[in-house]
Each structure stands twice: as C-alpha cells, then as structure tokens.
Simulated assay, not measured.
Amino acid sequence: MTYCLAIKVKEGLVAIADTRITSGSDTTQKKKVYIEQRDKYSLFIMTSGLRSVRDKAVLYFKELIDEGEVHNKLYKAVNAFGEQVKRVGREDKLDLEAGGLKFNLHTIIGGQLKDDEEHKLFLLYPEGNWVELGEGAPYVAIGNSNHGKAILNRTLTSESSMQLALKTGFLSFDSTRVSANDVDFPIDVVLYQNNSHEMVEYRYTKKDLESISDQWADELKKALDNIPEQWMNLVFDKMPLPKENSI
C-alpha cells in the first residue's frame, strides 16, 4: 500500500510520501515522489496504485517535457500527465485486469508554473479527470490514509504555517504507520514556498524521527490522563454492585 499526503497552506506546500512497496509477502523500498524542476517550472507527482502504471506514466510525461512540451500553468501539466495515465490504460488495462490486477492509479500533483498566480494542488483520478484543492480543503491524502486523518482534520487550516503542516503531516503518517503494516519509513518530504519556484526535498529515516514518535505517544497518554472523568459517573453509577459469592 502507500501513504502520500500533500498539504496546501498560504505559505506553500508540504508533501510526505512513504517508501514501502508491498508485493505479496515481499517488501521493498522505492521512491514515490517524482519532481520536475526547471526554470519557473516546479512540480511534484506522488502516486498510489500499481507501480508499473506509475513508472510508465511518469516516464511518458518526462519524455514529453524533455522533448520540449511547454506548460505555463499547473493544470495544463496535470492534464498532460492525465493523458499519459489514460495512454497507459489503453495499453495495459485489459492485460492487467486479465491477470487479476486493478488499474487504480491515484495521483497528487502540486507546485507552481510560470503563469500560476500561486502554488496549486490537484488530485488526479485513474480516469484522467481531476479536482483542485482549495482553502476549504487544505490537504489531500491517497493510499492507506484513513488512520491519520483525524489529526489533520482537527489541526490544519489554510492559515497554518508550513512548520505546523509538516509536524502535523508527520504525526498523521506516524498514526498510519503504527496501525498498518504496509506503510513505513523512510519518508520523503517535499517543501515548496509560494513564488519561490524551487522544490526542497529531504528523506527521513526511522532513526531521525523515532524520538518524535515516542514523544507523541507519551503526550497522548498524558493528555488522556488529564481528561476529566466526572462525566463518566453518569453511566458508571448505574452499574450494579458486584454480588458476593455464595456457597
């Protein structure tokens, strides 16, 4: 499975992707983030789904760029990548389904191109259609993401700082990691500041963030201990007293 998360705040974009690939009982590590960085052309692509579909679509897209295709706005690049996903579908979908595999590539694309007024974030579906994320939805997650959504929903707004977005994003990943055996370290982090036209990327290992994960677990336990308990008396007071054992 996969865990990919992208967060859009006014300051910029934060993206996180795990690197675990599961195939049957085998697990390997592979990068799930592709970055295209050129003059005033900055975007990242993260995917969840069949690796073969992802690699082929990314290769076709990169080939377009290398051959000189120009996109001045991010939605046009998203359209172009969507066309490559559909191209792979035309080539491989029937054979994949005949082999019992589902053509299920979901894609997050974020960044800013030459004529974009600000940074953008898109979710692209396997059919090639897409939605743009706006202020009302500051994040998008694909893959095995349900375990980590609670902290994102409770914490993030478009006014959040990039630092808070990364902190919250990591804790969301960590909640997923401890709940699902198909999501794990290392994680790749991508940062993009609005109007900078420059992506920053860093890979964190388990050793890098283990202390943060342990601290978060301890803080959760402390917070739970600090929750008042008087409200529970309404139900516990109704419990019958234990009966004495009779011989």
Rank of each mutant, 00 (worst) to 15 (best):
A6L: 03
K8A: 06
A17E: 09
T22H: 03
S23K: 12
S23V: 06
G24F: 02
G24D: 05
S25M: 04
S25C: 03
D26R: 11
T27R: 09
K32R: 15
Y34D: 12
I35W: 08
Q37Y: 03
D39T: 10
D39K: 09
K40A: 12
Y41S: 14
S42C: 11
S42I: 04
M46Q: 09
R51Y: 10
R54T: 14
D55E: 15
D55Y: 12
A57V: 00
V58W: 04
Y60L: 15
Y60N: 15
E63N: 14
I65Y: 09
E67D: 15
N72I: 14
L74C: 04
K76V: 04
A77T: 07
V78C: 11
N79M: 13
A80R: 05
G82V: 02
Q84I: 06
Q84S: 08
V88D: 14
G89Q: 06
G89Y: 05
R90D: 13
E91K: 00
K93F: 11
K93Y: 12
L94Y: 01
L94V: 09
D95K: 05
E97A: 02
G100R: 01
G100Q: 05
G100F: 04
L101R: 04
L101Y: 06
K102D: 14
K102W: 09
L105I: 02
H106D: 11
I109P: 02
I109N: 01
G111D: 12
G111T: 06
Q112N: 06
K114G: 06
D115F: 03
D115H: 04
E118C: 01
H119F: 10
L121D: 00
L123Y: 14
Y125V: 00
E127C: 10
G128Y: 04
E132M: 06
Y139W: 15
V140R: 10
A141W: 05
A141M: 12
G148P: 11
G148H: 09
N153A: 14
R154L: 13
T155H: 08
L156W: 01
L156A: 08
S160V: 08
S161M: 12
L164P: 09
A165V: 13
L166H: 08
G169V: 00
F173A: 08
D174P: 01
T176V: 02
D182Y: 04
D182V: 00
F185A: 06
P186R: 03
I187R: 02
D188L: 03
L191N: 12
L191Q: 13
N195H: 07
M199R: 06
M199H: 06
E201L: 00
R203Y: 04
R203W: 05
T205M: 09
L209V: 10
E210S: 02
S211D: 15
S211K: 15
S211V: 15
S213E: 11
Q215I: 10
D218R: 14
E219P: 05
N226I: 05
W231D: 08
L234E: 15
F236Q: 12
D237I: 01
K238D: 13
P240I: 10
L241V: 01
L241K: 01
N245D: 13
N245L: 09
